[in-house]
Design a binder for these strands. Structure first.
Lengths: 208, 208
DNA sequence: CTTTTTTTGTACTGCTTCGCATAAAATTCT
DNA sequence: AGAATTTTATGCGAAGCAGTACAAAAAAAG
């Protein structure tokens, strides 16, 4: 399909006036700010610079757009915490994880939009089985990340001997859920940092 | 105003066809199930058996109804956990608190509607300063309840000496936030119970 | 240049929504 | 019995909504 000429080979037809990745990013910000029910197609069209028929052609219906935004946000979250998770120092790893998450939660507005999934999906979840399942997957993924990180620390001998990776992993996940809600409510950074510091300290245990 | 006759004295005018308390309860269930943006006045009218002008006359506009529902739900929550909080045994007190909260979160539907505030207010919070403030108040109240309970345990000498009431109180609050989201996502009871048991065990510390 | 294909741009459709207007109904008071 | 008051019942108005129809525009291919 791609030719060797200096111009990129194109299929016939009028060229697109939008960049799909940029459009998804902007759509994500709308959903993150106002949630699924409140977000209108006009609003998304305006944010992306696309007309509504183009939105439907590119992404499907409104719910498909919402799921696309969730995928985008989740990938962004994974990318941001990846480096922290790879840190061998457990305390630094966990603190880095939460710092990276908070950075993402605070990016994008005067009031922190926080987490797209944890702050907007629950409102839809009781009534929409698809969204409820997607929320469940995100919760399970977060559990898995923390429990997995602590099990790695156990295998490397860097987790204190009396600590249970499952128990502490769930508590770290709960901490992230709480951080998301607090950020959305506009709690001051220092207050959220205190919660995070307390949770990490508990995992590490008393200083030897 | 109340006469001594066997009939209750009434002001002039057609009698109300609804019971305000029952109506608030039903309105609360609608908002809890579908959230603020998704709840329509028709739906609330149907659930309460009232016509829309009666709704407006009795409760004000849609947002005032939502806040009324939040007040109602919060009062219900306080009533349900009151007894557990008064228990002098700290472990039993905390376990009882979460059991009572979960009972309320699971009451009312096939899929657990969970917490009205923690599951529906965040979706509106970034865009509506009033709802954001109300969410912040609820988060602060939950913090205060747990920190206060642990400070009481400290004063009574029933909290282990190396425990910090503030730190652990925030973690218990985070646990409640997490419980609400998990219940809303339909997580199995056993999974949520594991999180709660782990948090309570951490607060109590190792068994002597 | 014409044909084909894809995308854009505008308008439309068939609802739904919130809040209000107003007449009728139901009560008490005189 | 009539007047005053409160509530109910029905319908309205203006705006908004998600999804679609279709003509025009913009490109490649022959």
């Amino acid at each position: 399909m791609r030719s060797s000429t200096k111009k990129v080979s194109r299929r016939v037809g009028r060229p697109r006036a939008y960049d799909p990745d940029a459009a998804v990013g902007r759509m994500t910000e709308v959903f993150r700010e106002v949630g699924f029910a409140r977000a209108s197609l006009d609003e998304i069209a305006q944010a992306t610079g696309m007309n509504r028929p183009s939105l439907y052609a590119a992404f499907g219906d409104k719910k498909a757009m919402y799921f696309r935004a969730i995928d985008h946000f989740s990938a962004e979250m994974r990318a941001r915490v990846e480096r922290a998770l790879a840190d061998d120092d457990l305390g630094r790893s966990l603190a880095g994880f939460f710092a990276a998450a908070l950075e993402l939660y605070r990016a994008g507005g005067d009031t922190p939009p926080s987490c797209l999934v944890l702050c907007t999906a629950p409102a839809e979840a009781a009534d929409d089985a698809d969204i409820r399942a997607r929320l469940g997957q995100t919760l399970a993924e977060i559990d898995g990340v923390f429990v997995g990180r602590l099990q790695r620390a156990r295998a490397a001998g860097t987790l204190r001997p009396d600590a249970d990776p499952e128990q502490l992993g769930l508590l770290l996940a709960a901490t992230l859920h709480s951080v998301a809600l607090r950020a959305r409510a506009g709690q001051p950074q220092a207050q959220i940092d205190a919660l995070v510091a307390g949770a990490v300290a508990l995992v590490l245990g008393p200083r030897a």
